[in-house]
Amino acid sequence: MTDPVITEEERIRVAALIDNLPDVQSFVRDYMCKAGADDMVLLNTELAVEEIFVNIASYAYEDKSGEAEVSIRSAENGESVDICFADTGKRFDPLSVPEPDITLSSEERQIGGLGIFLLRQVAEDVRYSYEEGKNILRFRMRLS
């Protein structure tokens, strides 16, 4: 008998504060473990989650307070997991930021611009949309 595929979506909503990153990480990690992710997938997922959540917590609401919602569900018959971040902060497409020039030397290299670049390298199908006043960033993590 094969393991049952988890299909139900789970979600968490937290204040968009850096201090809440550990809660978001454990929420995602628990799901990924249940879904059968190995250590490398867990680390890559952690990286993707940190880069997105830190962006939201740092920029989405500027000086105001606001929330971030994270939802997660199984996809492709249990072979992948889809993760979605939503916030109601200012409209911003992180995928519109030019990618850093990774061929420059240390002296020439700008400090920054790497977070979203990393996200796009470790995750698949990274997509941004703006729906009903929400910034929505979706991506897919393959389990193997």
């Binding site: 990286l47 940190e50 880069e51 830190v54 240390s106 290299r109 400090i111 790497l114 977070g115």
Partner: peptide, 11 residues
Amino acid sequence: YISSVGLRTIL
């Protein structure tokens, strides 16, 4: 584990 913030520090 290292994220972009750590890379920036090393750079």
